[in-house]
Amino acid sequence: MSTPSPLTPRPPFLQPLMLDGESLRIESQWLGEAQEARQPLLVFLHEGLGSLSQWRDFPARLCEALQLPGLVFSRPGYGHSTPRTAPWPPDYLQRQARGLLPACFEALGLADRPLLLFGHSDGASLALLYAAHAAQQVRGVVAMAPHLFVEPMTLLGLHAAKTAYEQGDSLRKALARHHADTDSAFYGWNDAWLRPGFEDWNIEAELQGRLQCPVLAVQGVHDEYGSLRQIEAIAELHADTRLLALPDCGHSPHKDQPERLIAHMQDWLASLA
C-alpha cells in the first residue's frame, strides 16, 4: 500500500480524553501519516469562534506545500467536541496550555513528538503559551493575529459580535454549520472577554524569557480585533521572531491571503533549515 501524502485528510474522529477527572471528547483529524515521527507535526489551533471544520481546506493546502503531516482539532466547547458551559475562567487560555493541550497530545500519542504550532487569534495566544510551557517539544510557532493583551478595538469587536449573535440570525446560522452547540462556542469565548476585569488580561510576562523556538508573527494591517502592537510585542520580548504585516488583510490572513501566507511560511521554514 502506498503511503498517503501529508495533505491527505483522514476522516474526523472523536478522541476520548480524561482531564481533571472529567471525560471529554475531542473532534480531531489527521492529515497524512501523522504518526510517522520522522518529521515535525504541524498542529492547527483555531480562533475563539473556530473549529476543525472552519479551517476548511487551508490545513491540507499548507501541509501539502510544506510536505508535513498535520493535526486539526476542536477544543472543548467548539465543533463536535464536548460543549463547555459559560462562564469560562478568565485564564482559560493559560489553563488550556498547561492542562488541555498536554492531555490531548498524550491521548493522541504525541507526548514526545516534535511539533510546529500554527495558531489563529485565541489559538495563536494558546500556541505561544504552550511553546513557553513545553519549550523542548515545540520547534516553531506561527502566531497569526495573536492576543498578548486586550486593546479597546478588541472589546469593540466583541461587543459588535454579541449584538450580531443576539439580535440577528446570520452569525448564529453561520456558527451552526460548524458547532454542535453554538451557545457553548459563542458565550464561552465572548463572555470571558467581556467580563469586567478582563481588560487587564496580559500574557507578556508568561512569555518573557520562556520562548525558545522561532516565531513567525503574522497580522493583517486591517485586523478589526487587534493592532500591529500585538505582533510587535512578541518581537520585543523574543528575539527569534520574524514579523509579517500583511496589507489589505483583516483578522483571518489564511482566508484573506492564503497564497501569500503559505509562501511566507515556506520561506520562514527554509530559513530555519
Rank of each mutant, 00 (worst) to 15 (best):
H133M: 03
L52C: 09
L42T: 00
T163L: 13
R61I: 01
L71M: 06
A135I: 00
G99K: 00
L116W: 15
A176T: 11
S23Q: 15
P4I: 08
D248Q: 15
L156P: 02
G99Y: 00
R98N: 08
R61Y: 03
A217N: 07
A127M: 10
A270L: 01
Q266L: 13
P87Q: 13
A65H: 11
G123P: 09
I26N: 02
S184R: 10
L71V: 07
G220E: 00
S81C: 07
A161V: 01
H159A: 14
H222T: 11
H159S: 12
Q230C: 09
F13D: 09
R139Y: 00
E47Q: 11
Y187V: 06
W88Y: 14
H159F: 07
R75E: 04
A205M: 07
F73L: 11
F58M: 07
Q15H: 07
M18A: 11
L244H: 10
G21D: 10
W88Q: 05
R75H: 06
V218D: 05
V215P: 03
G226T: 06
W193D: 00
H80P: 00
Q54L: 12
A273M: 04
W88R: 12
D267Q: 15
V218Y: 00
G70F: 01
L41W: 02
P214D: 00
Q212Y: 09
L17T: 05
L155V: 02
C249R: 05
L45S: 07
S184Y: 04
H251V: 04
E151I: 10
E236G: 01
A86T: 12
P89D: 02
Q54I: 01
Q67A: 14
L158A: 15
L93N: 06
G77A: 11
A160E: 08
S227H: 01
L171N: 01
T163Q: 15
K255Q: 08
K162I: 03
V141W: 03
R10E: 13
A217G: 11
G220S: 01
D240P: 03
F198M: 05
L7A: 06
Y92D: 13
E224L: 10
L237A: 05
A180D: 08
Y78S: 05
A180S: 13
P90C: 05
D248S: 15
S53C: 06
D183W: 09
G188L: 06
A65K: 11
H46P: 12
D20P: 03
H80Q: 15
V221K: 13
P253L: 12
T82P: 09
E259H: 10
D57P: 04
R84V: 14
T154F: 15
